[in-house]
Amino acid sequence: MASSSNRACSGATRSLEWPHGRHLDPHARAGRGAPLSPANGYQLRRELVSWNVDSWAKVNPGSIYSMLATLTKQGMLEATALPEGGRTVTVYTPTPAGIEELDRLIHDGIRTVTAMDPTGFRVALSFAPLLERGVFAGLLEDRLQTVRGGADGLAVEAERILTTQYAPPHVAYSLGLEGCLLAAEAEWIEDLLTVVRDGGLNFAGEDGGWVAPPEDAGWEMAHESARYREQLERLHAITAESHGKSA
């Protein structure tokens, strides 16, 4: 049975409303209540700052604008200029290619095991509710096998160093630390898998899920993005009508 501490950690995963399974919906709501799109650069920077990404990831919130430009050039985002209060603001919407890339990154982040730097896994875990329950469980099972194999291999290697002295003894203890981290993670994954298989947490295509409290700052982004979405829909309708008349 999962320990109370592990259940609390598992429950901290953000629950996102992406109703189309592993084919991710660009209009899904993030755990804080804010749609992922459309959004402008300031909104995204504000969101990154609220996650303190500069303290745990190699991301400077101030560089968000250059990142958005790069992703747009790569075809991952679509940029649209919209009028807003006497000025023009650029809003960004994920393209099908961008959604596919996000899907790939989540899968790779869950599968890839790096005991001394689990940042990628933790980020992917936060997006796990974008996946169907069975898909997420399968990815966790893959990770569990890799983690177990890594822990066993490190234990054997550490013992070999101490026995044969083919490397400085302190290296064995360094490997031992990494092995202990992997062994602890294996137990944690087993607990999380029990929660998922028993119907805990919320995943794509399922009713319910966590909703931010009314006072959460993320709702401001939700309202702004809803307004952008309405503007984009009107713009697309006008464009389609214009093309229809010219055809």
Rank of each mutant, 00 (worst) to 15 (best):
V89E: 06
V135H: 12
G85P: 00
L16M: 15
E84P: 00
P19V: 12
L232S: 07
G138E: 04
E159D: 11
G85Y: 02
L232R: 13
P96R: 10
S4F: 08
C9K: 15
H223S: 10
L201K: 04
D103W: 09
I161A: 04
A57E: 11
R45N: 05
W188Y: 09
H243K: 14
G176H: 08
L175C: 01
D152K: 14
Q74F: 02
N202A: 05
A155S: 14
R14T: 13
L44M: 07
T90G: 01
P118A: 05
S3T: 15
R143V: 03
A217N: 06
E178L: 08
E78C: 05
F121I: 00
G41P: 03
H223E: 15
G205Y: 13
A155G: 09
E132W: 08
V195K: 03
I106K: 02
P26C: 12
E157T: 12
A2W: 09
S3H: 10
E185Q: 12
L105Q: 13
H236S: 14
H23K: 11
D117N: 13
P26N: 15
E178I: 06
A97N: 12
A2F: 07
R229D: 14
Y173A: 04
K58D: 12
A69C: 02
T239Y: 03
N40Q: 04
P168C: 03
S15P: 00
D152Q: 14
L130M: 15
G153D: 06
G109A: 02
M76W: 06
W56G: 06
G244V: 01
G31Q: 07
H223K: 15
V113Q: 00
S10D: 10
L175K: 11
R46K: 10
T13M: 09
G98W: 03
G179N: 06
V113F: 03
H27Y: 15
M1F: 02
T194E: 09
L48N: 07
R148P: 00
V59A: 10
C180M: 11
K58R: 14
D216Y: 05
R46V: 07
V196Y: 07
W210I: 04
A186C: 08
